[in-house]
């Protein structure tokens, strides 16, 4: 990759990010969200009359809101289809990533969607991993599927 500069060849030196890993604790609110996920529940936050999803530690006006379980169904607001992974390798089969909004809420979640026919407005619900495999993170949800 060497190039010519005004004083001859320009050198390069290689380097790498040396951190072993990052570990993120869930936070005070995240701890309750994590516990709910273990139970197969998704939480939002009630700020006045608004229900915000995902839950956050405080309302836009800085006040403390009330954590509530989000009831379905979820509606597909938008989606995209991915064919390659983040390194540019072709996936065995394309995956659908959808923005899903629960009924009566603001915001929503981005997650995998498995459906024969994908369209905006599709009603869906989450499919959780078996209880013993859950770790209190969003990947405890395998994907969303259409509601019968």
């Amino acid at each position: 990759m060497n190039k010519r500069g005004s004083h001859g060849e320009v050198a390069h030196v290689e380097g790498e990010m040396e951190v072993e890993k990052y570990v993120y604790p869930p936070g005070t609110l995240g701890e309750r969200v994590a516990e709910a996920l273990l139970e197969g529940k998704l939480l939002g936050i009630k700020c006045g009359n608004d229900l915000l999803v995902p839950a956050r530690p405080y309302c836009p006006d800085y006040g403390r809101g009330e954590l509530v379980e989000v009831q379905g169904p979820w509606t597909v607001e938008s989606y995209t289809i991915i064919y390659k992974d983040m390194r540019g390798e072709r996936l065995k089969e394309p995956q659908v990533i959808a923005l899903l909004k629960p009924e009566g809420a603001q915001g929503g979640l981005i997650h995998y969607l498995k459906a024969e026919k994908v369209f905006v407005g599709l009603k869906a619900r989450p499919v959780f991993k078996p209880r013993e495999e859950r770790r209190g993170v969003l990947s405890d949800i395998l994907y969303f599927i259409p509601v019968e």
Binding site: Y24, P25, P26, G27, T28, G30, P57, Y58, D61, Y62
Partner: peptide
């Protein structure tokens, strides 16, 4: 050394206290 709170939560806690001490709200 290590707090449970996320960075956003820490910022919010400190900022809320500063506002409270001045008798102000975010508005």
């Amino acid at each position: 050394r290590r707090l449970l709170e996320t960075p956003q939560e820490l910022a919010w806690e400190a900022a809320s206290r500063a506002l409270d001490s001045a008798g102000l709200t975010l508005r």
